[in-house]
Amino acid sequence: MPIFLYIERATFIHRLHPTVKVFALFVMFWSVYWVDHPLALLPLAAVMAAAAQITGAWPNFYRLRWLFILVVFFTTLAWMVFYRQGPALINLPLIHLSRASLLFGLGRGLKLAELLATSVLFLSTTKVEEFTAGLARLGVPYRVGFAITLSFRLVPLFIDSALTVVQAQNLRGYDFNRGGPLERVRRYVPVVIPVFMGALRKANSMAMALEARGFGMSRQPTSFIDYPVEAGDLAATAALFALGAVYFIIYYTGYGAISPG
């Protein structure tokens, strides 16, 4: 099974300049940030669905479906319970359910889903090398950019390692699900230590291999791939500016907010 989310395609979005893709990531986050109302978030969801369709990223969403379901469900539920504004539809000792809390909970769930979806779309269409190049073009030092993108490669490796450790401890009769919430967290010590030690060893091996292949020789290494700026990049940048501006206006005019009444 591939450990990266990148899907090799030649779509318009795949071919965008890396800097435009990094900018798109920023604009989507920006737009999601400014509004709370589910209706205001829906157009962004539609944009993302269209992007997923165009780029063929749906298999990645399927791979991560449980993450989406759990995050969205529990966020929505938690905010519905703890957002105590507006006239109550149901009023119990701990639960104050109102139209506003329902909308707020839905909005928060949708927000998180959209932030996740933006990331999935970005990683489905952007190679880590492009990400590094994009960050470098935006003025981020090469070493910093490389370290950020390397983490995208390491995270799946560490998850894989953690799953193996869980299996090894399970086979020695260890029950991770015993006790209350705090006890359950504490019971992950036999996983955390081997994974941490393994990560340290892996990081050391990788650092050695990187230097042995010339990493650090140049402050601004050359790039094998040429990333010319094309008309499509300019058009996409303009569209992204417009989207960011529209969402700021929605926020500024108050249309994206939820009224307690």
Binding site: K127, L150, S205, M206, A209, R213, P221, F224, I225
Partner: peptide, 28 residues
């Protein structure tokens, strides 16, 4: 190195081979 997983950093084979050349500043 012995650990082949720890010495590959790129998303495709061509990029992997190019990596070290990029680091020493070779022309495209």
């Amino acid at each position: 190195f012995q650990d082949f997983e720890a010495q590959l950093f790129s998303t495709n084979v061509a990029h992997e081979v190019a990596f070290a050349m990029e680091q020493i500043g070779m022309e495209r």
